[in-house]
Design a protein around this nucleic acid. Structure first.
Lengths: 333, 333
DNA sequence: TTGAAAGCGCTAACAA
DNA sequence: TTGTTAGCGCTTTCAA
């Protein structure tokens, strides 16, 4: 049982009205320095803590943000969640984390605002959201990590196409000529796949190479098992690739395991590049070359944009906020 | 702006009093089947959603639980959080996730109940909590994953000592004679280290071997880098080990990387066993033999015990709840 | 610069 | 079985 010290008790102790205590505590309105000190002392002595439920009931604000990611057990999202957590705390907000499983329906529900009524705003990391949500976004919303074209809300992302182009170009620059890609998806609205694939093709084209679909096996998801399966398929090819660019480190890990298992050298026989720069990628065999999105910036931009949105900012601000990225070259490619 | 449909609107529409609506919605009190249907229809048509702030203000319950883990970027905790998330949702609770950084002070704050005033109860995964908190636990609290002796609250854990004994015995049974251990900690109150080390020593003893501190290098934390550093030290020894038992899969990954880098065979020259059965461990080179705690059971027990605690259950129930574990034998040992 | 008082939407004690 | 009503603790208009 939390001590039942309320505004009233503090007010009595400090010899002022509740209103003044409220003002001092939230640092709003006017009051003299002397009053302020007296109130703060009373707060301290009594161990007063504002009742958030009452505050919310009154103001309609809870200070709670929701972060919805596909799966917390995916290291990239876990790391991202960690950053968002820190950033939300820095902004004085509480963060709720939810897993959508990457299901379009679950993502839609969240975009529509059918979340815990507690939340003031939502940061959604969609995997397969379509634009049915466009017409009726129900909460202050920010999309993190993927562009869903029609949604009227800020999108926080990195230059996926540019990053994919750089990663592919890197492989090409090292003399690879059959560069495969793991991460193409055939489901509709798979924006990550689409933007990165575009970058890959641009790099190929710039090098005078032509895109072969055989070198871009489709995957169902972005897990290790998907990467492993795709790599196996690639190695069955009459002309197997001499390099593979994976759209996620997790898939790269799976791919690495398959290549090793075949007794092939990395990067000797097959170079491998990933995407995400998850912590584990420093410890794979061999350490993974990968695209590192600036996760801290991503989190900062997302929380910032959301807080502004909640504060009533209209869609005035640019609808796409870009965080940086860089290619971290390690030993796998 | 959430639609401002309240109990009142629903009551009017259904032609009953607010009280009845409230009862129907929460399924408490008495009402006829006909009333019930009428009310539910009105709720549906109006899209009524209860205001949780008002409810909480009135009842003092928010239905929000807090899970505090050291770091979300540690895969074991990320996976565990995923399970707890699901379990909390199944119980109709909202889950807040927080990272303590494993700092004793941060953990103490949480155990003392100095959390977001919103939360009804806390599941804490402590790394270094001491028993200063004993006297004054301030919220319904459940400890997950580690026993902190004096705290008057349920402890959810696995048989760490037994598990460590089994893992070590497994290595011994395969003919290893110099079995090292990575994970010994010298900071006070490192319960995980202490219980697992005890199991390791028991197995050694049962095999007629004696404990050598040189084979148990101290680590500062349980990350990959710590495992790598410890493994390096071990390989410098005049008589290096022929097997290593790591208290966390993350450390095992670091250790594997070092062993490979030295050109030694796994498990040929050095067998490696981990602890946690994190998903990544199926994809290490070679796949990691590891102790798998039943994370689902851990989550279920923790949420269950906490909900009962919040509901007013006294410390009547057993103070230690054990989840199962098993040794998953893969190729590394 | 401060005080008094009216609710925010809901639950539960009291009535009918 | 259902209706009425008094607050929960806070913010904020209206007065002083």
């Amino acid at each position: 049982m939390r001590a039942d010290i309320g505004l009233k008790e503090v007010a009595e102790r400090a010899g002022v009205s509740m209103r003044t205590v409220s003002n001092v505590v939230r640092d709003t309105g006017r009051f003299s320095e002397a009053t302020r000190e007296r109130v703060l002392r009373a707060v301290e002595e009594l161990g007063y803590r504002p009742n958030t439920a009452a505050r919310r009931l009154r103001t309609g604000r809870s200070g709670v943000l929701l972060l919805a990611v596909p799966e917390l057990s995916m290291p990239y999202f876990a790391e991202l969640a960690g950053h968002v957590l820190r950033e939300a705390a820095a902004q004085g907000c509480t963060l709720l984390v939810e897993a959508t499983g990457g299901h379009p329906e679950a993502e839609l529900e969240i975009a529509l605002g059918r979340t815990d009524p507690l939340v003031d705003g939502v940061i959604l990391s969609p995997l397969a959201l379509d634009d049915r949500a466009a017409a009726q976004v129900g909460v202050p919303l920010v999309l993190l990590g993927e562009r869903v074209h029609e949604l009227p809300c800020p999108h926080i992302t990195i230059d996926n196409t540019g990053a994919a182009r750089e990663a592919t170009a890197h492989l090409l620059a090292r003399g690879r000529r059959r560069v495969a890609v793991i991460g193409r998806q055939t489901v509709p609205h798979a924006a990550t796949s689409a933007t990165r694939l575009a970058g890959y093709r641009q790099a190929l084209e710039a090098a005078g190479l032509r895109y072969e679909e055989a070198l871009a096996p489709a995957v169902a998801a972005y897990g290790r098992a998907d990467g492993a399966a795709a790599m196996r398929a690639l190695l069955e090819l009459a002309e197997p690739p001499d390099a593979v660019f994976c759209f996620a480190d997790a898939m790269a890990e799976g791919a690495l395991a398959v290549v090793r298992e075949r007794g092939l050298g990395i990067p000797g026989d097959v170079a491998v590049v990933g995407f995400d720069d998850v912590e584990a990628s420093r410890y794979t065999a061999p350490p993974l070359t990968t695209v590192a999105p600036d996760k801290g910036a991503l989190a900062r931009l997302a929380v910032g944009a959301l807080v502004r949105r909640i504060g009533g900012a209209e869609a005035k601000e640019p609808s796409v906020l870009l965080a940086g990225h860089r290619l971290v070259v390690r030993e796998s490619g």
